[in-house]
Design a protein around this nucleic acid. Structure first.
Lengths: 131, 131
DNA sequence: GCAATTGATGTAATAACATTACATGACGAC
DNA sequence: GTCGTCATGTAATGTTATTACATCAATTGC
């Protein structure tokens, strides 16, 4: 999907996430953006929905939080399955992609005639520094 | 981990989940168990925590819901990584395990010196009937 | 026996996350 | 200009999860 011009709110949310060290909850983003006129959760959720649609933001299901995509490419093509390691110590999140896993999952879902729409892979643990 | 004798509340929650077609939220479980004396969310969450610890229940992060483990074995040994397909149509959840994926993830996390504690794999889509 | 500890339970209150409903404004197509 | 569409603003509410504190039962050590 081609990334369209972002709206004002989408830009604000994207910037907040980009400049953050780690993942942020919707309400944390809201608080960061109060100075910029944000008043209600919905403003954040609406922007996040679009940004996810554009592939610029990922939702971490196990944290109820959001991160900017760290993928070096632009977002004009699909990157397939996205996986994350999430450090319980420092909160660091690392995004990665792996063709082999993607293939294998595809084989397995195909075997049960399952039509995949979205795949979530999240690995909780401790990073090298926090082990 | 050897499965200990379940307490009264744990048994009630486990039975509720076992007899359910699909995943249930904590609050849905609570409602089902009002007749059995449950009054507060915490009673459910405490039981669920233990049941997950014993490997008898899995949490579906992308649904904020819980399912009984469908693994045919008893729960006295680790089954490694658990993955799920989740149908958006009928709500059916299928649990599966795959050695190849486990190996591959292990290799990848090892490469970043990441110590895995819990792995979440959830595939949202449509099952054969609902496609 | 009987403190002391541990683990399960009960209850209330609150925190954290997310959505519904409805109103308004900006802008291009026609 | 008016219609349709999309972004926005605001309030209210719904859903999920935790904190804090009190009680009770079983076990241990003395």
């Amino acid at each position: 999907m081609a990334t369209p011009q972002l709206t004002k709110n989408q830009t604000l949310v994207m910037d907040a996430l980009s400049h953050s060290e780690g993942p942020m909850s919707a309400y944390t983003i809201l608080d960061k953006l109060r100075d910029h006129g944000f008043r209600a959760p919905l403003q954040v959720y609406r922007a996040l929905d679009k940004l996810q649609e554009y592939g610029m933001v990922h939702r971490l299901e196990s944290l109820n939080a959001f991160v900017a995509c760290t993928c070096p490419h632009d977002h004009e093509h699909d990157h397939g399955v996205t996986a994350f390691t999430i450090c319980e110590g420092c909160g660091q999140v690392t995004e990665f992609h792996d063709e082999a896993i993607e293939q294998r999952l595809s084989t397995l879902t195909r075997a049960q005639n399952f039509k995949t729409e979205k795949t979530t892979i999240e690995i909780r643990g401790h990073c090298q520094s926090c082990a």
